[in-house]
């Protein structure tokens, strides 16, 4: 008798604790999300007040333009992380995405300089980008190689092929399409900015507003459950790598238009792409990668670099502040997650 009373009491207190914990958890998560957004807002407010010309339409469009390349790449990376799960060593990741962009840019610029038209050159760049993505898919899905490793090997192949193609030189390029991308504008917004806006809209709708996107999340979140539910896991995972290759190709055309050339060294973008895709998880309610979150973090990184520029702070600081912010944001996130995890 007394034992059962005790038992009930324990159960009741357990329940209370659990309730308190889940309330605390929700509160913690809320604080983190609001905190991240507040930090975002505070930095922006500082720039608005102290950086001359920060809020001018011209400058803001400039930031969106500058963010276009990083944004498109980060969408590719985000889709791979969504479909492959966000585990550190075993989850989905595409290390080859930046090198792939370099290769596509080299193919595109080289074909243009050889006199092939825009149509063929763009087609070839997209074909190359998707082929590299397909190679990743084959390695990860077909052969079961860890994504981290498979895409690392493909990174070397893509970077090496870019070097062989361009002999490590700048390949100048000009074409009607590039002309439109450089100087065209519609409703007062330049073509590059439109490219990011349209691409973002498509990605957000496809991933967050269709059953396709929902299944993609299922595949990344719990492959076995997804399989049991009749979803073709290999197809979805392969799709993300090919999509990532496609994003690399699109970004390559944008980068050629911005620089009027294909230039060596695009591999350096990799870390920023990773940072953008991973930082974006903070903007989602359950700390999962989302396209909207990625867009916000890409714009945030862009605005940060831009604000520093306007404040005349040396660009050498940008990387460091970006790194510190990642750490800060993720530390707060994992703090909230920690209270979530200890059930």
């Amino acid at each position: 008798m007394s034992a059962s009373v005790l038992h009930t009491e324990v159960a009741v207190s357990d329940e209370k604790q659990a309730a308190a914990k889940s309330a605390g958890r929700r509160f913690g998560a809320l604080v983190v999300r609001l905190g991240a957004i507040a930090a975002f807002a505070a930095i922006m407010a500082y720039f608005v007040i102290f950086a001359p010309g920060f809020t001018s339409t011209f400058n803001l469009i400039n930031v969106v333009e500058q963010s276009a390349i990083l944004g498109v790449l980060a969408y590719g990376m985000t889709s791979v992380i969504i479909g492959g799960g966000s585990d550190v060593t075993e989850g989905g990741i595409d290390l080859s995405i930046a090198a792939n962009m370099g290769l596509c840019a080299a193919v595109y610029a080289t074909l243009l300089s050889m006199g092939y038209g825009d149509f063929l050159s763009v087609l070839a760049a997209i074909a190359v980008g998707m082929a590299v993505g397909a190679l990743n898919a084959l390695a990860v899905v077909g052969l079961g190689i860890l994504p981290l490793l498979a895409t690392l090997a493909v990174l070397n192949v893509a970077a090496g092929m870019e070097l062989t193609l361009t002999q490590n030189t700048v390949v100048g390029a000009s074409s009607p399409l590039l002309g439109v991308l450089v100087s065209g504008s519609f409703l007062g917004i330049s073509a590059l900015a439109w490219a990011l806006i349209v691409f973002s809209a498509i990605m957000i709708v496809v991933v967050h507003r269709t059953s396709f996107g929902l299944r993609l999340y299922a595949v990344g979140g719990h492959p076995e459950a997804a399989r049991a539910a009749g979803i073709s896991v290999p197809f979805y995972v392969s799709f993300t790598y090919v999509l990532s290759g496609f994003c690399a190709a699109v970004a390559s055309i944008l980068t050629v238009s911005r620089l009027s050339a294909s230039t060596p060294g695009s591999g350096e973008l990799l870390l920023s792409v990773l940072a953008a895709a991973l930082l974006g998880t903070v903007f989602s309610r359950r700390f999962v990668p989302t396209m909207g979150g990625t867009l916000l973090s890409v714009l945030f990184i862009g605005l940060l670099a831009n604000g520093f520029q306007l404040l005349n702070v040396s660009s050498y600081w940008v990387n460091g502040v970006q790194g510190a912010l990642i750490l800060l944001v993720v530390a707060i996130t994992s703090f909230a997650r920690g209270s979530e995890g200890s059930r």
Partner: peptide, 14 residues
């Protein structure tokens, strides 16, 4: 409690 991947990525940038 930052994941090693992100922690060392941040340190890399810094």
């Amino acid at each position: 409690n930052i994941s090693p991947f992100l922690a060392t990525l941040g340190v890399l940038f810094i």
